[in-house]
């Protein structure tokens, strides 16, 4: 179980990294944490001509908090993110999702951007970004662009990133007032790829009705996505509505089938976890109302 021979490149600046991407294109693999890529390299599933190690790019490990968003550099480690009060209080859904990511020994090295660029359909960080309507910043020699997360993930391990682009950062919308957040997932073992992961952001109006709801699903289809819930805006933010939403969405999904679970079970988890998570998000929002 040893990788194919590859050239090792450790750029000192983003520009150098982009030059390398231009040179190698899809023959390069970009390594940040390497928790998924390392395994695929060792199994020779991925066979790059060059391994571009971006861990030297300190400029990608920064965090910038604005009024409405927080921008995290791609290299921020998952465990590091959990220790950043600005990020954890500003993006509570991420704070709730991160403990589910892999294990202690994975989060210590795995990066926020790496997980997004890898685009595992069950991964928590992409699901959170999609649920919150965040964005992914990509840089190429031609410049920089920002892609809404909901458009970035295109399928199994497949994203909108072009071969000459580098994911440089993620943009997280800061928590909104009177808005609740919840995250839950179920896996066969603690820390495994989720069979189904569910995230919710819900804003509740003064009359207790749903003002806005975002219901994200991971591990169900080939990418994380937000279900269409517009029809439920205006309905009471109650457990009953939460169940209604989850049950309705469960009928519309087209779940993956793998060794761990079939489509029926994934649909069932959308119902059960969905109802729980939406209820928790409603309660979180209502609680803020009462506190205010």
């Amino acid at each position: 179980m040893k990788p194919v021979a590859f050239e090792y490149c450790r750029p000192d600046t983003v520009e150098e990294a982009l030059d390398l991407l231009k040179e190698f294109g899809s023959d390069a693999s970009i390594i940040s944490g390497g928790l998924s890529l390392g395994a695929m390299l060792n199994m020779r599933l991925v066979r790059p001509k060059a391994l571009i190690d971006i861990n030297g790019l300190g400029e990608l490990a920064d965090i910038k908090a604005g009024d409405a968003t927080i921008r995290t550099g791609t290299l921020i480690r998952q465990a590091g993110a959990m220790e950043m009060p600005v990020l954890m209080s500003g993006v509570p859904l991420l704070a709730k999702a991160l403990p589910y990511v892999g294990h202690y020994q994975i989060r210590s090295r795995g990066t926020l951007g790496g997980s997004v660029a890898h685009a595992d359909p069950s991964a928590e960080i992409p699901l959170t970004l999609v649920t919150l309507s965040g964005a992914v910043t990509l840089r190429s020699p031609g410049g920089s662009r920002e892609v809404p997360a909901r458009e970035f993930f295109q399928g199994l391990l497949t994203t909108d990133r072009r071969a000459d682009e580098l994911v440089t950062g993620l943009t997280w919308p800061i928590r909104r007032d009177l808005t609740g957040y919840a995250f839950e997932e179920l896996a066969q073992r603690h820390g495994d790829f989720a069979i189904t992961a569910v995230a919710a952001e819900a804003t509740v109006a003064g009359d207790g009705s749903i003002a806005d709801v975002s219901f994200g699903l991971g591990g169900v289809e080939d990418r994380p996505f937000v279900a269409t819930t517009a029809g439920f805006v205006g309905k009471p933010a109650t457990a009953a509505t939460a169940s209604d939403i989850a049950n309705t969405i469960a009928e519309t999904v087209d779940p993956m089938v793998d060794l761990q679970a079939n489509a029926d079970y994934r649909r069932q988890l959308v119902r059960v976890l969905g109802a729980r998570v939406l209820t928790a998000a409603f309660n979180d929002a209502t609680g803020q109302q009462e506190a205010a």
Partner: peptide, 21 residues
Amino acid sequence: EHGVCGACTAIIDGAATRSCL
């Protein structure tokens, strides 16, 4: 050698992490 079993965990640059990856 694929990052799951944890036997190779070492503290590298201050983080307990897999040395096979």
